[in-house]
């Protein structure tokens, strides 16, 4: 679509406005976490933590430091189970995708449907029995429980992603290897896996963000020391009044890994969303 010249100028002003409007929440989050409580009340959230006429009474590192000390254990928990579940769900998704695209067998569509149905199940539908199952397995309030749960709920989307990608690998390649006497596992390890870097990046980025961002499984399956960062953050409020600077400091720490991934690998993340949605 061609826009007339004046229209183009208006358009760019509009777009810059959009960028500001959508980045504003993140900006207020950053400014607030560097302010003293008095600073939070005296200034608007848009202003940087500089007092009237830059006499600088408001900037402080304290909220960020306090928040980090409260959250460090939970951040480590989140990191542990997120990375573990990310790796496991990607590997299983890759194997599933390989078998589903390269081997013809009866009921393969049924198996695929079975793998992907989890995308549409609301987590609420499993919570109570899941807690009971985990208690029986001794995995309630254990990071292992979160790893298994997140792996299971990651399988649908990773299977979908890898299946779409492996559909593009020529079957003749597999046939040739089979003629040479390679078995199912050897073909996967020697031929399919080395070609899989692109889908692994997309799946890993997608899985990391969604597992890291999860709150519900964390709040239901863990307590105290073993809680993920999302749960600790949700409970990070003052006793009587909300300490907004502390809360925003915690928010920044919690959002940091995801923000970094988004800055570096955002392109792949968007691809994950599109693959999951368009081809579903």
């Amino acid at each position: 679509m061609r826009f007339p010249k004046l229209g183009r100028v208006t358009l760019y002003i509009l777009l810059i406005f959009f960028i500001f409007a959508f980045l504003l929440p993140l900006w207020t989050c950053i400014t607030t976490s560097f302010k003293t409580l008095k600073g939070v009340i005296d200034t608007t959230p848009v202003e940087p933590p500089l007092g009237p006429l830059f006499r600088l009474p408001y900037p402080t590192m304290e909220p960020l430091i306090t928040a980090f000390n409260i959250m460090k254990r939970s951040l480590l928990n989140s990191f542990t189970f997120t990375v573990a579940a990310m790796i496991l769900s990607c590997l299983l998704g890759s194997i599933n995708g390989y078998i589903l695209t390269k081997i013809t067998f009866k009921g393969s569509n049924t198996v695929f449907l079975f793998f992907t149905i989890g995308i549409f199940i609301p987590y609420q539908a499993v919570l109570v029995p899941l807690v009971l199952t985990m208690s029986k397995l001794g995995l309630y309030n254990h990071l292992g429980g979160l790893i298994l749960t997140h792996t299971a709920y990651g399988i649908p989307i990773t299977t979908l992603l890898f299946r779409n990608f492996y559909g593009l690998i020529p079957n003749s390649l597999i046939m040739a290897a089979k003629t040479d006497g390679a078995g199912t596992w050897t073909i996967y390890r020697r031929i399919v896996l080395p070609l899989s870097l692109p889908p692994f990046v997309v799946a890993a980025v997608f899985q990391f963000t969604s597992i890291w961002n999860d709150f519900l499984f964390g709040v239901v399956l863990t307590r105290g020391q073993n809680q993920p960062a999302s749960v600790v953050l949700a409970n990070l409020k003052g006793t009587t009044t909300v300490m907004w600077n502390l809360l925003m400091g915690g928010t920044l720490w919690y959002a940091l890994p995801v923000l970094v991934i988004y800055l570096v690998l955002g392109k792949y993340l968007m691809r994950g969303y599109m693959a999951g949605a368009v081809k579903g």
Binding site: L92, I95, N96, Y98, I99, T101, K102, I103, T104, F105, V111, F114, F115, I117, G118, I121, A125, V126, L127, V128, P129, L130, T133, L148, T149, T151, A152, Y153, I155, T159, G167, N171, I174, M175, K178, G183, T184, W185, I187, Y188
Partner: peptide, 27 residues
């Protein structure tokens, strides 16, 4: 898609199936 039938492929599905049965389908 057509191709090769390879042996013992159900074995490769089993970890995923076990996880989904225990933590998704059964609950």
């Amino acid at each position: 898609k057509t191709i090769t039938s390879l042996k013992n492929f159900p074995l490769f599905f089993s970890p995923a199936i076990i996880l989904i049965v225990f933590f998704v389908a059964y609950p």
